[in-house]
Design a protein around this nucleic acid. Sequence first.
DNA 1: TTCTTTGTTGACGTGATGTCAATAGACACA
DNA 2: TGTGTCTATTGACATCACGTCAACAAAGAA
Lengths: 221, 221
Amino acid sequence: MQEKADAVSGERAPRRRRRPEEAERAILAAARSFLEERPFREMTVERVMVRTGLSRPAFYAYFRDRYDLVTRLLEGIGGLLFAVDWRWLSGDASGGPEATSEVLIDAVRRGSETFVQYGPVLRAIADAADQDPRVEEVYRYGLIERFAGAVAARVSRDVAAGLSPAYLDPEETARALVFMTERYLLDVFGRPADSPSSERTEAVFDALEKVWVRTLYGSVD
Amino acid sequence: MQEKADAVSGERAPRRRRRPEEAERAILAAARSFLEERPFREMTVERVMVRTGLSRPAFYAYFRDRYDLVTRLLEGIGGLLFAVDWRWLSGDASGGPEATSEVLIDAVRRGSETFVQYGPVLRAIADAADQDPRVEEVYRYGLIERFAGAVAARVSRDVAAGLSPAYLDPEETARALVFMTERYLLDVFGRPADSPSSERTEAVFDALEKVWVRTLYGSVD
DNA sequence: TTCTTTGTTGACGTGATGTCAATAGACACA
DNA sequence: TGTGTCTATTGACATCACGTCAACAAAGAA
């Protein structure tokens, strides 16, 4: 079956050659573009590589498997989420209740916007996380749990300062709020090729903000 | 390679024959027992069937594939979650704030206990849901969204009654709280062969309860 | 016993994976 | 411009899980 196509057509697909990291970037870009259109469950190595013009085996020169691929996609985004919420995470109640609520609200909205931007990729990583132990490690423990830890520290300070009620368990409350935020945002913004209206987006941000503020600081009138 | 083993040993594994639904129950039980030990990602048709004494192809006489299998596992549990929370879901604020909070607290705890009992199975279904569109349909839309809808209706009534603040969007708030509860409980109780201490269990129930009550009804002092 | 029903399985084709030896661009140097 | 080296790239292979189907054999009927 292996015909020498060029013997007839005189033409063979020219085999280009790129620099290693150029190829790697091309693969990462192809994966991102794929995930903008289709869910992770449909992402095969084959389907990603056709978008690069390289052959499927070439993939394995740069990535161990598709889980390794999404892990590296996460690297570019993970830091952002922390950076974005830094003001609230690292702060304390010194500005008083109103100012504190406001900083929290700002943090929730900025964090949410990161999800809006990278929704499909984050969704893919979350999906991959419960199919592969390595991704689970990086995402669930390296990112989500670490984030929950930072939130817990903040809650702990607010409880100590009397800003939040003492009956709140910082660790567990933080986890609950972080899980809520993650899943809700993934649900709304993580679907390929289906971005919600700006009204919906606003309503979602608003709902999240209310739950955070009312849970931690009480009323938000 | 296909040796006639009995020609030598004189013995062949006797091929038992069961009633259809007896076999089906055996497969469902095997799947449950598998999921008590290992995560869904490791569940292959082969590995389930060895626990039944039947061959792998026999599986396909009863189930279309492993996603069909977990879907049927869900059937037995789905109804429970609704039944358990019925008092709060279908109620209104007629008993006054304290009574209402108490009914909610009871609902959250009873619902959570269902997760404690069926954690690994529910976790498997949730995992399967983002690997297969049919499971997604049944779980995400048939169960979670439907549940969120019932919660939204209740929140809506509480807002109308002035028990919850008018700035809460019933639909979105309900979704946020339901997602939180689902993911948090799956995280804690969904891991095969690793059940948390009773202290942890208590702290988790408590944190969930606090977020629900403070969000919907304000302070819980 | 013989017949019929149907639960059960061996064997096959398929799709995706990950590896490896062999191939052929790109660049350095003469 | 020609020659050689390096290494990016790939065709072909072995593997694994899947889903199907024709053929087999156990249980109940006649």
